[in-house]
Design a protein around this nucleic acid. Structure first.
Ligand SMILES: [Mn+2]
Ligand SMILES: [Mn+2]
Ligand SMILES: [Mn+2]
Ligand SMILES: [Mn+2]
Lengths: 221, 221
DNA sequence: TAATTAAGTTAAGTATGCTTAACTTGTTGC
DNA sequence: GCAACAAGTTAAGCATACTTAACTTAATTA
């Protein structure tokens, strides 16, 4: 039986491994899911018994095709809901993640396919994350880097932001950062890993936390 | 703590009492919720402890203001979701109940109020059921009778149908029964409580089960 | 290499919401 | 009035998904 809890574990395992089939540490997982390590150990055994993951004691956990399929389905539902809420109800991009986090577990395949069709099979969610297709493949390949890895003086285009923290996303709107916005890297401060950028002619200092959660590609190229 | 299970119990208690504050029998509740009587007894105690219901041993359970408020909120979410899915995604009226049955528990007040606004504060759901307002009041008062109580030879207008059974609702579409459709009562058969009606010039025999789940008011009156 | 620390596991226990089996209480028909 | 039956309760147990506390294993570092 796949429960809501299991769906969330699989989603996290898949996401933490960044789509590769890498091993994920249980401590990492426990932090991501806000549960204790012992809870993760228990669940790891169950997911292993169901053939969703490979679980090696004291080593970690690794998603298997069966688990990946489930994870992608949930991620698909999540991202389509986010976009649907933005498109139909005009919700702002900082409000939709939390709603989708719940709705993703209670949406039939039929309903999500209807939403997919309604949105004309979109490639990206409101935060620039690619939306998995019905068959589990992606229509779009991400190819960007976090702002922390950007080169001084160059201009980039915003392709993706981490939607997990509402406040962070809301702050981005406030300083006029949105998808496809051009950003120039003015200064990189080593002592606190903050970055000074220019957006629409206005300079802003972004904390290390922000800098790790904004993803860019080179502009005009 | 109000759980999903408790929301469903409260919704059923409220619905079975038909909006009045009547006592509901636990056996009735157990049938409605598809659980055993002992499960209902246990939950009754918990709901009582939380002040959501009055519970008198061996007598039954009765909703209290605190429980009614919760029930109405869930019903509001349910009916608004049903209408929203019909309006935006063009889902058919037989498909939306099951989806709403899940979504109703995972929708924030903010989201449902946004949906309410988007739909311009509708009075009725796709099956003719009134939608509770944000404050728990109704914008519309139901005043109809089941087809089983209709008078021979008279013509009525369909105001409401029971949406619980997908197949039943789908059958209604098939014989061209929808909200506001005019129906003439041709014959009432006592031996099996079936009714013969005329819809758009075509006669149909409706089983007792159907007849109990279609609600009407007098036409042109 | 041995000590320390981090990562991971195990055991025991909790809360929720069910079940079945055995029981008690209430109601109805004769 | 009482037998029979329906309605309701209690007790014991199960599955899920957590917790804390005590433990083991692995990795790091001096
Ligand atoms: Mn999201
Ligand atoms: Mn997103
Ligand atoms: Mn419904
Ligand atoms: Mn309805």
């Amino acid at each position: 039986m796949i429960t809501i809890s299991k769906e969330n574990y699989l989603k996290s395992i898949y996401t933490l491994a960044k789509g590769n089939g890498n091993f994920v540490s249980l401590t990492e997982l426990s932090k991501e899911l806000n549960v204790t390590k012992s809870a993760v150990t228990e669940m790891s055994k169950k997911l292993y018994e169901q053939g969703c993951v490979k679980y090696v004691r004291y080593k970690g956990i690794k998603i298997l095709p069966k688990g990946k399929k489930i994870a992608l389905k949930v991620i698909r539902k999540h991202r389509l809901w986010e976009l649907f809420l933005v498109e139909t109800l005009n919700l702002s991009w900082d409000k939709v993640h939390l709603e989708a986090e719940k709705l993703e577990h209670f949406t039939s395949d039929f309903l999500i396919d209807t939403i997919d069709e309604y949105l004309k099979y979109p490639k990206l969610d409101p935060h620039g994350e690619p939306i998995p297709c019905k068959d589990g493949s992606y229509r779009y390949k991400i190819n960007d880097i976090p702002m922390s890895e950007c080169i001084l003086g160059k201009t980039y285009k915003v392709t993706r932001v981490n939607d997990r923290e509402e406040e962070l996303v809301r702050y981005l709107s406030k300083i006029d950062i949105q998808l496809n916005r051009e950003i120039k890297i003015i200064e990189k401060l080593k002592f606190d890993n903050s970055v000074i950028i220019e957006v629409n002619g206005v300079k802003h200092s972004l904390s290390s936390k922000l800098v790790d959660n904004i993803f860019l590609t080179k502009a005009n190229g």
